[in-house]
Design a protein around this nucleic acid. Structure first.
Lengths: 193, 193
DNA sequence: AACAAGTGTTTTACCTGTAAATCAAATGTC
DNA sequence: GACATTTGATTTACAGGTAAAACACTTGTT
């Protein structure tokens, strides 16, 4: 769900007025409505996890749509911007493999993106002299300027999107999410095994 | 990012040990590391939004990978499960259009999924008698049993994934996310315009 | 030195999603 | 009652993404 944004990532959630039940109203967000539906059908199940995971997934879907807007104006997909951003923020050259790890995508995807970004003159490649398998990728001046130009817009846009939540709550949210993410990044490999 | 899961949804984030900087350590999660990198390069920018949006996106990516596991065992993609789940939790037939709205995906995607799920005998269709454009889709007994069999596993799995966060914090997180989501669902159309 | 095994990158084949065009049927308008 | 408009669903063309295979090169072993 990146390019044009996907859709079906709801953690068992997903809902909308659809037929007749009007907007969200004072009953909560759409995920709350979905959880209510599930509870009506399976009163025995603990739907607690949905209230977190469903909401994270739904927020992510909505935020990505929103975020894409400023990027699209610059003719970049989010995946492309992530790649360029990785080069910009690290400040040094990266190999395709490193870029794949940095952007959490497959090597094949990085290869394709690099091809396009190179054609557009945003990145350059140079072969390693020691190990002739590896390439080193760096931003061109154009690429650097593009990232530096977009980033402030992007952040301003994100600020606007979050403006409905007051300052202190934003802080709490960031902290709690940081805690969760730390747990997930640490434990996930373990759980998957 | 669903079928096999997407990847590059980071909100300007994305990071991993990559070369040599070891695990996450007591410095925070990977998003915190990315934010530090950005601040080093652009000390003037307000990176606050990244700490929320970047984390939501990254959590969503990780959670979806994790969630996929129990579904995959049942031979379903998340998108397919979302569709079946919508039918199960509403308890009545839905038209393709309603299913698209429920699962936040395009009509074309629903058409394709319905074709596959029908072939697998998990859903059935019936034409509307009044309006011959519309179809009504319902779960077969097999489909219903499949959903009912998977759902508890799914929730148990999600519980396990969240178990690193203690009870009270889970509650706070759910509430804060609910607030954010409510804002986003209400205001997003406005912002996009 | 030859060769097995490993590593970094790219290629291939395929799958799934979207947007836009198309088809089909209902509905409003004159 | 014919005709433009709208609405529901499907088809088409295409853009990415992945997994697995293929390459190219390096490194360890004997």
């Amino acid at each position: 769900m990146t390019a044009t944004d996907g859709g079906a990532n709801d953690g068992g959630a997903g809902s909308r007025a659809g037929s007749g039940d009007g907007g969200t109203g004072p009953g909560g967000d759409t995920v709350a409505a979905v959880v209510r539906q599930w509870r009506a059908v399976h009163p025995d199940l603990d739907t607690g996890p949905m209230e977190i995971i469903g909401r994270i997934n739904r927020c992510a879907a909505l935020l990505q749509q929103a975020e894409d807007a400023p990027l699209r104006r610059a003719g970049l997909s989010r995946a492309e911007f992530d790649l360029l951003g990785a080069l910009r923020r690290t400040g040094h050259e990266l190999t395709p493999g490193e870029l794949a790890r940095e952007t959490f995508s497959s090597g094949a995807a990085v290869t394709k993106r690099l091809k396009q970004l190179t054609e557009r003159g945003l990145v350059e490649r140079r072969g390693d002299t020691r190990d002739r398998r590896v390439a080193h990728v760096r931003l061109t001046d154009t690429g650097r300027d593009l990232v530096d130009g977009i980033l402030p817009e992007q952040l301003a846009y994100e600020s606007a999107v979050l403006s409905g939540v007051d300052g202190p709550r934003q802080g709490e949210l960031a902290a709690l999410l940081g805690g969760l993410l730390g747990q997930l990044e640490g434990r996930l490999d373990a759980l998957r095994a």
